[in-house]
């Protein structure tokens, strides 16, 4: 709050008269503060749910470590030393306290979960951002072209491609990409290696990103196209712009596009959670060294500390994405930025 007040003081001085409503703090800043506070219960809720779900499954962690030939006594012994025989809430509490100290625990195979996350999270984030940015950029371009002439050639092509994108499962599309671009053309590897720099980023992550991004592109471009067409037909300020003699392209890009981005941002933020599932599957298909792939491995090993750590990261990404969406609303819409209640 001290920081917020300081910012207000800097905004004061000449010209600040008549802006008394800002005295209580910039609404946008306060919104960010409130949302950051709201992250904490979300993360606790997510981790608790994951813990609860995992603990209802038959517990075979020790069995998984020792192998099927291990004696029941040895399994019980290991379960005891891992603390897995304690009541559910005691286990959760000690995990939570450790996390608050920055320690995500030790995975079944003996490695530290912190270390695991440090290696795999950047790759997954890179993959996510790559898929999102490219599909979004293409969607904006294609949707604008399509909205220029509804039912024109660009619109029809986009409709066909988008229908394909919407109805194709990402993993099926992934295999198609592998067959064409990895096996036949040899442009990309079938299985992704570690990402070490820009060159290996493009080499290893392009096909996975395309597999994830195709469906996203389909959703984004159709949504934006529909929104643009609607704006162009219904909004009075579009008529105003046309009445000024502004060319159709400029009306579309300068006036309609910015106002159409709100729904798109909402959908992207909402989709982020579902994207986690796609990332896990696609990373497994391409053997990308990321947390999605790691999560699948962790689940088959009943590796609770690893699963918990990764779930928490995904939850954090989703929450951060939604916060970013809220900030973007404010950037795009001055009415939110200045916290106005009129119109």
């Amino acid at each position: 709050m001290a920081l917020v007040q300081q910012i207000q003081l800097q905004q004061g001085g000449p010209g600040a008269r008549g802006r008394a409503r800002r005295v209580t703090g910039s609404p946008a800043l306060r919104m960010v503060g409130r949302r950051l506070l709201a992250v904490i219960p979300v993360l606790i809720g997510v981790s608790f749910l994951t813990f609860a779900i995992m603990s209802t499954l038959p517990n075979n962690t020790a069995q998984a470590i020792l192998g099927l030939s291990a004696s029941p006594a040895a399994v019980a012994q290991l379960n005891h030393s891992l603390g897995l025989d304690r009541p559910f809430w005691v286990q959760y509490w000690s995990w939570l306290i450790n996390v608050l100290h920055g320690n995500f625990g030790t995975a079944v195979q003996g490695q530290s979960v912190n270390h695991e996350l440090a290696i795999y999270v950047p790759t997954t984030l890179a993959l996510l951002v790559y898929a999102l940015v490219v599909s979004l950029a293409l969607a904006i371009i294609v949707a604008t072209l399509a909205a220029r002439r509804p039912n024109g050639i660009a619109d029809r092509i986009n409709l066909t491609v988008s229908m394909l994108g919407l109805s194709t499962a990402p993993y099926a599309f992934a295999f198609l990409l592998i067959i064409i671009f990895a096996v036949k053309l040899g442009w990309f590897p079938v299985l992704s290696g570690p990402v070490t720099g820009p060159a290996s980023f493009f080499r290893n992550l392009t096909l996975p990103a395309a597999s994830i991004g195709f469906g996203l592109f389909a959703i984004y471009s159709r949504l934006l196209r529909a929104d643009l067409v609607e704006q162009m037909q219904r909004e009075d300020y579009i008529v105003t712009a046309k009445a000024k003699g502004v060319a159709p392209w400029r009306v579309l890009i300068r006036h309609a596009l910015r106002n159409s981005l709100f729904n798109l941002i909402t959908v992207i933020a909402l989709n982020l959670g579902g994207l986690v599932g796609a990332v896990a599957i696609i990373e497994t298909v391409f053997q990308v060294q990321g947390i999605g792939n790691d999560l699948i491995t962790g689940i088959s090993n009943h590796d609770l500390p690893l699963i918990q750590g990764i779930t928490l990261v995904f939850a954090l990404v989703t929450v951060a994405g939604n916060l970013l969406a809220d900030i973007l609303y404010a950037v795009l819409d001055p009415r939110i930025r200045y916290g106005s209640t009129t119109s």
């Binding site: 909004e235 009075d236 300020y237 008529v239 105003t240 009445a243 000024k244 001055p334």
Partner: peptide
């Protein structure tokens, strides 16, 4: 030829 419209709240682009 220029035109002024009925509802000034909707006829101006809110984000510009």
């Amino acid at each position: 030829l220029a035109m002024v419209f009925q509802d000034p709240a909707r006829s101006l682009n809110p984000t510009m």
